[in-house]
Amino acid sequence: MLGYNQFRGVIVKRRWNWLVWLGFAMAILAAYSYLFLFIRFPITRDFPWVNLTLFLVAGCLLGVGLYRAFAQPGQYRGRVSGPILAVLSLGILGLFYYGTFYLARHLPPGENALRVGQPAPDFALADIDGRMVTLSQLRQGKRAVLLIFYRGYW
């Protein structure tokens, strides 16, 4: 795109504002890398600090890119694409935050559960071979039994 450079008074080609695009790409990476990489490791999954840091980097890149677009419009492009990419990046951050800080914590309170010291109710449930298994049977000859309730895959 050709633009008017006020200092020189000549038509010059304005430079591609790659920072806003890099910032946007970083925001996508920040969200996707959690789903496909950082969710695998407890240290980066329990609290998504790596991904929030990547979002911060994305914000800095977008910030500098937007500053260039608006403070030096004669030299840099991005006065239209910059704000659009910034809003999209904010949207990605919003979705990421909603998923990890709201949806993932939207669980029934633990207070409903049986307490330590209470007897564990016996049960008879089918294992993967369809055989009935009871808790009392499982306890036989073991020092302890760990019951893991999980959401399942339905």
Binding site: L103, A104, L114, P119, L147, F149, R151
Partner: peptide, 27 residues
């Protein structure tokens, strides 16, 4: 369905320890 939860039951059938996460991602 079940919420994620873990109970440790001793040989007398008493719950000795439990873990009730408030966050699906923190297991």
């Amino acid at each position: 369905i079940a919420r994620p939860a873990e109970f440790l039951v001793d040989r007398t059938g008493t719950i000795r320890w439990e873990n009730l996460t408030e966050n699906l991602l923190a297991r």
